[in-house]
């Protein structure tokens, strides 16, 4: 495989060149989406960052830090509200200790919604200009496999990929693709090959292209158009699809901008 990569410094070499607008709290998801739209950057809605306690504060902070440090990220703008539990400036400081291409701003100190959108677009534009991304050859691909459907056997494709030098992490701890995606993100995989449960639709994750492989289930057969690969795909076909996606082809969920994050929580919200 010849693979195009983007040199993202300390974040590593990625296969996508995404700027991340990271809302550190649910209250700034709308402002973040407005900034992201202007910048053609990636963001996502979530319900975390405040009204939570105990281990979850550290857990979600680490989750967001792992997202921002992902190799597919070119630069990160953290957008906070100001009074939340998970303080955006502390998250940004944590990120900055590893990656200079990070900035943050806070709605309560930026003149409100429009003020934050304006400052956000300016800050994100500056990050892009200051940290250009050289195109390089990806030396080694790290593939994640979401095995929510434990009836699927992946030994054949795993050995074929290992043989051509692909690193593989398999996530099979959950019957839920979303939680498996989170584990794979934290492992730093470039791309995900997802085998969703037979009764689940294809789904995606922000920043990381997700290739969905159908099972032969009635649901998957009914919505076969929404899968990147059919149930009877050969290892060669799977490898060919991975190669195209790594080199820029959008997956089906990537093309429609789907990709919700499902971050696990230990404690009830307060």
């Amino acid at each position: 495989m010849s693979m195009k990569g983007f040199d993202h410094g300390n974040r590593g070499i990625g296969i996508r060149n995404h700027q991340l607008i990271l809302p550190s709290v649910v209250c700034s998801t709308r402002v973040s989406s407005r900034i992201a739209k202007e910048m053609d950057a990636i963001t996502f809605a979530h319900q975390h960052g405040c009204g939570f306690i105990g281990n979850d504060v550290g857990r979600i902070t680490d989750f967001f830090a792992a997202l921002a440090n992902h190799p597919n990220v070119s630069s990160t703008l953290v957008v906070g509200l100001g009074c939340e539990t998970l303080q955006g400036n502390e998250l940004a400081a944590k990120l900055l200790s590893k990656n200079k291409s990070t900035n943050y701003l806070v709605t309560q100190e930026s003149g409100g919604v429009q003020g934050t959108v304006n400052s956000g677009v300016a800050a994100a534009t500056e990050l892009k200009a200051k940290y250009p991304t050289p195109q390089v050859v990806l030396p080694r691909l790290h593939l994640g496999i979401d095995l929510s459907d434990d009836n699927i056997k992946v030994d054949e494709i795993v050995s074929a990929l290992t043989e051509v030098g692909v690193d593989i992490t398999v996530a099979a701890s959950h019957k839920n693709s979303g939680l498996n995606f989170s584990d794979l993100m934290e492992a730093g995989v470039h791309v995900i090959l997802s085998f969703p449960d037979r009764n689940q639709p294809p789904s995606g994750f922000p920043l990381i292209p997700t290739i969905n492989v159908a099972s032969g289930s009635p649901l998957h057969t009914a919505i076969s158009q929404d899968f990147d690969l059919s149930a009877d795909s050969s290892p060669e076909e799977i490898m060919e699809k991975i190669n195209s996606v790594v080199n820029g082809e959008l997956t089906k969920v990537e093309a429609i901008g789907a990709g919700e994050i499902i971050a696990g929580r230990e404690v009830r919200s307060v």
């Binding site: 649910v26 709308r30 319900q47 959950h174 939680l179 696990g264 929580r265 230990e266 009830r268």
Partner: peptide, 15 residues
């Protein structure tokens, strides 16, 4: 501003 959050009482990691 169309925020929507599901309130949960239990651990969501072990499923």
């Amino acid at each position: 501003h169309h925020e929507f959050s599901l309130s949960r009482m239990y651990n969501t990691i072990i499923r």
